[in-house]
Amino acid sequence: MLQVIVNGVALGAAYALLALGFVLILNATSAVNFAQGDLVMAGGLLAVALSTTWPVPGIVLLPLVLLVMALLGLGLSLVAYFPLKSRPPVAVFISTIAVGIMLQNTANALFGAEPRAGPPLLGGGVVEIGPVVLGRQALSIIVVAGLLIAAQYAVFQHTRLGRRLRATAQDREMAEALGIRVNRVIAGTFAFAAAYAGAAGLLLSNIFFVTPSDGSNYILKAYIAVVIGGWGSIGGALLGALLIALFEVVFPSLPLILPFLGGVPGAAWLFSQTMATILLYLALLAVLVARPQGLLGETVQRRA
């Protein structure tokens, strides 16, 4: 039971980093960055490449991954956002899809199509706490992702840079009128979002591997997390990411957690991974109908 929940929280923590970057760009630019999933893939493959050159634990490579991915995020803003910033948001939506496809094909050309395993954060193996056996990698992911999210919170709440980022996200025109260099702030947001996506890639690449085509799956998760949690809400994105991952992992495990459910007619199908996916998307539809602003969302944002 505990192992299942730890796995779910670890997956959710990595999804949260992805969703966080997604919502930061959404708030700063009112545009959806559909390359965010491919940035996760890029971070994972970067970690694979770095660990091939320097076979050290992932935690040592993390600062370098954050830095390189931040530069990639800056590049993304220069290519896919700034030339189109005065166009309708759909132009950026399309341009980020294009950049995502370019990233995918570049990765395919550089690394090949096969899945690769990134470095473990601290080391493999398990931690035994009495009768409970927990994966060391899953625990490491939770701790590192938690620290990164806390760092984001601290920067946004307690620094001048954070105030500028928040001001730009809330009202770009007003922020510009108050002398904030909005373009720099937006470029910084892209860098920040890409760095966190790269961190998610590093965290996921060891236990779940990484292939050049992974991005589309991740962007779907980020999108659902943001819709469920609340369009434009940072807290909502984190909550949505956690809920998705817990649902993915815990729902199919219910017959193990509550053995009497195994006796329910059709239990094998009802608690299958396929059913979990169907129910997840039904929940998404229910949220869109009953609470369009999401669980913690604001009602004024526009959906792409």
Binding site: V4, G8, L204
Partner: peptide, 20 residues
């Protein structure tokens, strides 16, 4: 027996049920 989509990453639920 259980079918998995290609996007499923965490195999612990299906393995747990198979072992049970």
């Amino acid at each position: 027996e259980e079918g998995l989509e290609t996007q499923v990453r965490d195999m612990s639920p299906v393995l747990g049920k198979a072992r049970a």
